[in-house]
C-alpha cells in the first residue's frame, strides 16, 4: 500500500512538473490518470519493493554520486584506450559474483556494471554475472569487488557487510 501511495505521489508530481498548468480541467484529468495507472499497476501486481524500491531512497543519495564518479573515471580510461594509436584493447570475459541477497540487488549491480564504460554485463544467472570488459585493467578493477560491496550496502544495508558477505 505504501508503494502504491508513493507511486501515485511520484506520478502526480511528474504530471504537475511537466504540465505546469493548474486549471481545474487539467488537474481533474491528472488525478484521473494517476488513479487509473495505479489501479492498473495494482491489478498487474507490479507494485512491490522491486518495481518501486522506495526503501533505497536515502541510501541511494550516497550511491548515485559514487557511481557517477566511477563513470567519469571509467570514461577517461576508455577514452584513452580508444584514442591510443595502436588501440590497446584486450577484450576479456569474466564472471563476477553478486553478493546481494535478492534479484533487485543483482539487477542494480548488473546495471551499474553496464553503466560504467569498459564493462558490460552479458548475462545474469543465480548471482553470477558474466561481464565483457574492454581491457584487462577494467576487468581487474571490477574484480576488486568495490562496486559489489557498495551495491550490497545499498540494497541490504551496512549490516550485510559485517556479516561477512563477499
Amino acid at each position: 500500500m505504501v508503494h502504491a501511495l508513493s507511486l501515485g505521489l511520484a506520478m502526480a508530481t511528474l504530471w504537475l512538473l511537466l504540465s505546469g498548468l493548474f486549471d481545474p480541467l487539467l488537474l481533474t484529468l491528472g488525478v484521473l490518470s494517476v488513479i487509473v495507472v495505479v489501479a492498473v499497476a495494482l491489478r498487474m501486481d507490479v507494485i512491490d519493493h522491486e518495481g518501486h524500491p522506495i526503501h533505497l531512497t536515502v541510501r541511494g543519495l550516497t550511491y548515485w554520486p559514487w557511481l557517477l564518479w566511477e563513470i567519469v573515471k571509467a570514461n577517461v580510461d576508455v577514452a584513452k584506450v580508444i584514442l591510443a594509436r595502436d588501440l590497446p584493447i584486450e577484450p576479456t570475459e569474466i564472471c563476477v559474483k553478486a553478493g546481494q541477497a535478492d534479484e533487485l540487488g543483482h539487477t542494480i549491480y548488473a546495471n551499474s556494471i553496464t553503466l560504467t564504460p569498459g564493462t558490460v554485463s552479458l548475462d545474469v544467472e543465480d548471482g553470477l554475472i558474466t561481464v565483457h570488459a574492454l581491457t584487462q585493467q577494467a576487468a581487474a578493477d571490477l574484480s576488486t569487488g568495490e562496486m559489489d560491496r557498495r551495491v550490497t550496502e545499498l540494497v541490504d544495508g551496512r549490516k550485510a557487510i559485517s556479516r561477512g558477505l563477499p
Partner: peptide, 15 residues
C-alpha cells in the same frame, strides 16, 4: 567487434 563497440556507445550514453 560489436561487444567492444558497446563500450564506445557507452561513452556517448554516459559522459
Amino acid at each position: 567487434d560489436m561487444f567492444a563497440r558497446m563500450h564506445g556507445a557507452g561513452i556517448i550514453d554516459t559522459m
